[in-house]
Simulated scan of single mutants.
Amino acid sequence: MIFMLSKKDFNFLKDKVPYAYKLVTTKEEKNNNIYFDVKEVSDFQDEINMEIVDSGMDDEETVNKLGKRMYQIYDNLLYQKRNNS
């Protein structure tokens, strides 16, 4: 499935969620957006979720600033998935 993120969000995903990024197979930049292909979408989503739990929450299991950004990206990708099905 082809997804699109802003270059800023894509680079954040690449830096902060490397296991999800490893599932990206091709990418293309257009107008400050990155279009990228993911073959194993459910694995990709799982990796983002695991990273939110691992580094996006504090000790009291409250979502921190990093987790909020990850959730925002995750929600954007989920929206795209639902609208492309």
Results as ranks from 00 to 15, higher is better:
75 D>G: 13
75 D>C: 07
79 Y>R: 08
68 K>F: 11
59 D>V: 11
84 N>M: 12
14 K>R: 14
29 E>N: 05
5 L>T: 07
9 D>A: 10
30 K>Q: 07
17 V>S: 12
76 N>P: 03
78 L>N: 10
67 G>W: 00
28 E>A: 11
2 I>P: 06
18 P>G: 04
16 K>W: 00
4 M>Q: 07
61 E>V: 15
23 L>D: 02
44 F>S: 05
27 K>D: 03
29 E>K: 10
25 T>P: 08
58 D>M: 12
52 I>V: 15
55 S>C: 02
2 I>Y: 08
4 M>Y: 06
73 I>Y: 01
74 Y>N: 03
52 I>W: 01
3 F>W: 04
75 D>V: 14
75 D>T: 06
59 D>Y: 04
68 K>Q: 14
12 F>R: 09
11 N>E: 11
55 S>D: 00
31 N>Q: 14
31 N>L: 15
25 T>C: 08
79 Y>K: 13
33 N>A: 02
12 F>H: 00
16 K>T: 05
79 Y>L: 12
83 N>H: 12
22 K>R: 08
20 A>R: 05
81 K>Y: 10
51 E>Q: 11
19 Y>G: 00
60 E>Q: 14
24 V>F: 00
70 M>T: 15
16 K>L: 04
38 V>G: 02
22 K>V: 05
81 K>F: 13
29 E>P: 09
84 N>T: 15
55 S>L: 01
31 N>P: 04
53 V>N: 01
82 R>P: 01
60 E>F: 12
73 I>R: 02
60 E>K: 15
17 V>N: 07
23 L>W: 00
18 P>E: 14
29 E>Q: 11
71 Y>K: 09
48 I>H: 02
47 E>V: 13
39 K>A: 11
19 Y>F: 06
57 M>H: 13
84 N>S: 05
80 Q>R: 04
66 L>E: 07
42 S>W: 01
76 N>Y: 01
20 A>P: 08
82 R>E: 06
31 N>G: 13
37 D>L: 08
74 Y>C: 03
34 I>T: 15
46 D>T: 06
15 D>I: 06
75 D>M: 13
47 E>A: 14
53 V>T: 05
54 D>A: 10
37 D>G: 08
75 D>Y: 10
18 P>W: 03
10 F>H: 01
46 D>V: 10
17 V>P: 14
51 E>A: 11
34 I>C: 13
68 K>D: 13
71 Y>D: 04
2 I>C: 07
22 K>E: 06
8 K>E: 09
19 Y>M: 07
43 D>I: 11
24 V>I: 15
38 V>D: 01
1 M>F: 03
58 D>I: 15
3 F>G: 05
42 S>P: 04
84 N>W: 08
60 E>P: 12
68 K>L: 13
26 T>Q: 12
70 M>W: 05
18 P>H: 02
13 L>Y: 02
15 D>R: 12
28 E>M: 14
40 E>P: 09
23 L>F: 04
66 L>I: 06
45 Q>M: 10
65 K>V: 15
51 E>N: 08
